[in-house]
Lab assay of single mutants.
Amino acid sequence: KRYRAVYDYSAADEDEVSFQDGDTIVNVQQIDDGWMYGTVERTGDTGMLPANYVEAI
C-alpha cells in the first residue's frame, strides 16, 4: 500500500521515521490503531510512523 504524508513528522524515537508533508510512504503495514510501518520513498528511511499523519493514495 502507498500513503501520502499530510503533515510533517519528526521521529521521536530511533525506530520511527521522519517525513514531510507530501512525501510518499511505501510498503506500509498497519501495526495497531495508531501506528504503521513503512518506507519514506524520498529518503529511503524505514520505520514506524503515526497513522493519523498519512492518507491512502
Rank of each mutant, 00 (worst) to 15 (best):
G47C: 02
G38N: 01
Y3G: 03
A5R: 00
P50F: 04
D32F: 12
V26L: 11
Y3D: 04
A56C: 11
Y53Q: 06
Q20L: 14
Y53V: 08
V28C: 12
R4A: 06
T39H: 04
E14T: 12
T39V: 07
Y53H: 10
R4I: 11
T46R: 12
A51K: 09
Y9E: 02
K1Y: 07
A51H: 06
D13M: 13
N27A: 10
V28W: 05
T43N: 06
Y7I: 12
V54M: 07
S10G: 07
D23E: 04
T24Y: 15
W35G: 03
P50E: 01
M36W: 12
V28F: 04
A51C: 10
G34M: 15
Y53P: 02
R42N: 05
V54R: 00
T43W: 02
Q20P: 00
V28T: 07
D32A: 13
D13Q: 14
Y3M: 09
A51N: 06
D8W: 07
S18R: 02
G38H: 00
E55A: 09
F19V: 05
V17P: 01
E14M: 11
V40T: 01
D23P: 01
A56Q: 12
G38D: 03
Q30P: 10
Y37Q: 08
G34S: 14
E14G: 11
G34L: 14
D8R: 07
D23Q: 02
V17E: 01
A5L: 00
E55G: 04
Q30H: 13
I31Q: 07
I57T: 08
Y7C: 15
R42P: 04
K1T: 12
G22N: 06
M48F: 15
G44K: 06
D15I: 11
Q30Y: 14
V28M: 07
V6I: 15
G44L: 06
R2I: 12
A11T: 06
V17K: 01
L49T: 01
T24A: 09
Y7M: 15
T46M: 09
S18F: 03
D15H: 14
Y53K: 10
R42L: 04
N52D: 11
V17T: 03
R2H: 08
A5C: 08
D13S: 15
G22T: 05
E41M: 09
V26G: 06
Y37I: 13
V26S: 08
A51D: 05
E41C: 12
A51P: 05
Y7R: 15
D45V: 10
D33C: 12
E16Y: 09
M48Y: 14
D23I: 01
T43S: 07
G34A: 13
N52G: 12
Q20I: 13
T46K: 10
W35F: 07
Y7Q: 15
N52T: 11
E55P: 02
A56V: 13
W35R: 07
N27E: 09
Y9G: 01
S18V: 01
Q29P: 00
I57K: 05
W35T: 05
R42Q: 06
A5E: 04
I57W: 10
A11N: 04
M48S: 06
Y53C: 11
I31G: 07
D13E: 12
G47D: 00
E55R: 09
E55T: 11
E55F: 07
R2T: 10
D45Y: 07
N27H: 09
L49K: 00
D33A: 12
V17D: 00
M48W: 15
D32E: 10
Q29V: 15
G44V: 02
D45I: 11
S18I: 01
D8F: 07
E55D: 07
Y3R: 03
D15V: 10
V26A: 08
D32P: 06
Y53S: 11
D15K: 15
E55S: 09
D45C: 14
N52V: 10
V6A: 07
Y7V: 11
Q29S: 13
M48H: 08
D23S: 00
P50A: 04
S10A: 12
V54F: 07
R2S: 09
R2W: 08
D21S: 15
D23F: 02
V17H: 00
Y9P: 01
E41F: 06
Y9I: 00
E16I: 05
A11P: 06
F19E: 00
K1R: 12
D33T: 09
D21C: 15
G47K: 00
M48C: 12
A5V: 05
K1S: 11
Y3C: 06
E16Q: 14
T39Y: 05
A51S: 12
A51W: 05
D21W: 15
V6N: 09
T46W: 07
D8G: 11
V6L: 15
K1Q: 12
D32Y: 11
G44C: 08
A11M: 04
V17W: 01
E14C: 13
N27Y: 08
R2Y: 08
G34T: 14
V26I: 14
I57R: 05
M36G: 03
Y3W: 09
A51R: 11
D33N: 11
E55H: 08
T24E: 10
R2P: 05
T39I: 05
V6P: 00
G22L: 03
D33V: 09
Y37M: 11
V6Q: 08
V54C: 03
G38I: 03
L49R: 01
M48V: 09
S10Y: 13
D23H: 02
S18M: 01
Y9N: 03
Y7P: 00
E16W: 06
Y7N: 13
A56W: 10
V54G: 01
A12Y: 09
R42M: 04
K1F: 07
P50D: 04
V28H: 05
D32R: 14
A56R: 09
T39A: 03
D33P: 10
E16R: 07
I31M: 12
D23W: 06
Y9H: 06
G44P: 01
Y3T: 04
D32L: 11
D32I: 12
D45E: 14
W35E: 01
Y9L: 01
W35Y: 07
D8N: 11
S18L: 01
D32Q: 11
Y7G: 13
V40F: 00
G44Q: 07
V40P: 01
T43L: 01
D8E: 09
A12P: 05
